[in-house]
Design a protein around this nucleic acid. Structure first.
Lengths: 343, 343
DNA sequence: ATATCCCGTGACAACGATTACCTCGTCTCA
DNA sequence: TGAGACGAGGTAATCGTTGTCACGGGATAT
């Protein structure tokens, strides 16, 4: 029933040498006589020997694995990040263990612990809300992506959330909008907070008030974003433009605008998404490359693995506004209707 | 610099007992005196002890981990599958190692080996093209998802690809289409093959010929699908309907139809995708639930882990056609134009 | 000619936890 | 009262691999 697993000692026996020498061959140690090497290699292939990575890692003290923690694996944004990290790891011969915190703070800590208990070589984390500062006392290299960790300095790779949001809202204002709505996730999440700040920045610059009824910061998913967008449209003075701070929420906003045939309302999305360019109007987006985020994070981590002991590095990726139509719509209806041409 | 890690023996020492007893407490063995248990627990928290999972797994012979292999982590379909598997694993206290084969046959085998070398408790695999039949001789439980393995029986969870495709094409034929194009990935991939078979089934039933110029089976991604769709439209006798066998290709098809303002061409997509219901016309799809696929696969694997030794089970998930508009468009232009009303 | 060094090799311990197997009282029931 | 059962706990072996150290012998240095 249970197959007997081939051990290194079996190989050694078959090759008429010691386990240690067999180990040398396996690990490419040059100090082995050609003839001996040949015998070991022959035995390895004949017996179908394969290293027990658990035993090796236990002995070595570290595992050839990096742990990645994101918020949700199913989110296309994080999926792309992960995929890129995996590719980078593959090139370096490292395995990747992916986990998601699902926004549960205690799970976040549990995952980090569990990965450390596996002796991962390094970690790439999208921090949620937990205080992970105890990681600083550990010798596990950690790189944070998309958000900063709380209470301690570390390598971080983020987007220019605030600047990007400011740019997006400025863009809308330039087209004459006065009532720009803001849709985002909870401000507890750093990215949302920063994007909100950028939104406020742009309004302040233009001496426009921040209208509370136009700010929805509880959109954890597209469904909530839909509901909030409906509420916006039902206001006495509805917004003439909507800035969605996340592609997930953009899906909700766009859905409602189309259902209600209110595609006269301008829209800019923080983050591109599939088909954004196919809709009519096509959606103007702030393009952020999750692939780049993943790649830079992996590079940073690898540098640490290679012994880089310099101060933490803060990498900020700039964003690009891609005008496609929805963000270049000029205001109509609303307040203007009163004294204007009407519909 | 390097932190000294707390070992079980340190805990035992602090609790004035033996490593074995400390181990008993850690593992919830009931045969420990309350007082001793308390001392150990106190020592554990005070010293911040955490099990070395590598050592534990080495000794136990298996790791509390399941390995998942998909084609691409970035693909929303697989991302959803993975996410669901991870959730199921979480509930069972198992870790998940996710890897992608990236369609490289040799990488596929390498990954399986590497996971086995980690002594994973089980595997969930989307097989690509490699012969993995050697897994049958292993005692690692394996569940295949989305496709069947080559050359050996095993637990498999798939969708009703052929039946679904047949249903979709029948649906189009019912609306009067005579020239239905087929867009898919390489037929080397089993799902594509089955969906193509379903397409042929439906045409044969209706005594319609399979026109080679309307069949594109090389669409590995949306970009190729776009190119092929363009070619379709440029034919002397273009199709009046397109059946896209994968949501990834659907993105390409839809993009071209919109760019060229040819939304008069009917479309059905195998697989739903974000915003499919927002486009105009909204896209008629065969709804397949990657979440369900993931859940069922996990359940199957867990059953095996729990000692189920019955014959392999073949689970086929039925599909549902969701009419949204694009699949209910009646033919126009093309051959009809000759004797018809014209545009 | 003797000391030194390197090469190829192997014996042995250690990585950290668990399992198999005992010991030693105390309790229960005949 | 004696025998077995049971509870609590300990000792030593083991999981498979690799780092440490030692060793014999030929080559090189002095």
């Amino acid at each position: 029933m249970t197959k007997k697993v081939v051990r290194l000692s079996d190989v050694a026996l078959a090759a008429a040498t010691s386990a240690k020498t067999a180990s040398r061959v396996i690990n490419g140690d040059p100090r082995v006589a050609p003839e001996t090497r040949r015998r070991v290699e022959e035995a390895v292939t004949r017996l179908g020997y394969r290293v027990d990575l658990l035993a090796r890692s236990l002995r070595r003290g570290v595992d050839d694995t990096i742990g990645v923690i994101v918020e949700s694996i199913a989110d296309p944004f994080f999926a792309a990040v992960i995929s890129e990290i995996e590719l980078a790891a593959l090139r370096r011969g490292l395995n990747v263990i992916v986990t998601s915190n699902r926004r549960l703070p205690n799970r976040e800590v549990a995952i980090v612990d569990s990965l450390q208990q596996r002796r991962v070589a390094g970690l790439i984390i999208t921090p949620h809300t937990s205080d992970l500062s105890y990681l600083a006392a550990t010798d596990t290299p950690v790189v944070f992506v998309d958000r900063h960790p709380r209470n301690f300095p570390a390598d971080v790779v983020t987007f220019d959330d605030r600047g990007g949001a400011r740019m997006a809202v400025r863009h809308l204002l330039r087209y004459g909008h006065q009532r720009v709505a803001f849709v985002s996730d909870d401000l507890e999440v750093e990215t949302s907070r920063n994007r909100h700040a950028g939104y406020v920045d742009a309004l302040m610059e233009a001496d426009l008030p921040v209208a509370p009824e136009l700010v929805a910061t509880d959109c954890a998913d597209a469904a909530v974003a839909r509901a909030r967008t409906c509420e916006f449209l039902d206001l006495d003075e509805p917004p003439t433009a909507i800035f969605s701070a996340r592609s997930e929420t953009s899906l909700g906003v766009v859905k409602v605008l189309h259902d209600r045939k209110r595609t006269d309302i301008a829209t800019v999305s923080f983050g591109d998404f599939a088909l954004a360019d196919v809709l009519s109007p096509a959606i103007t987006v702030l393009e952020q490359s999750p692939e780049l985020l993943g790649r830079l994070a992996a590079e940073r981590l690898f540098a640490r693995l290679d012994g880089d002991h310099n101060d933490p590095v803060n990498t900020v990726i700039p964003l690009r506004l891609v005008p496609r139509g929805s963000g270049e719509i000029v205001p109509s209806g609303g307040a203007e209707t009163v004294g204007g041409a009407g519909v």
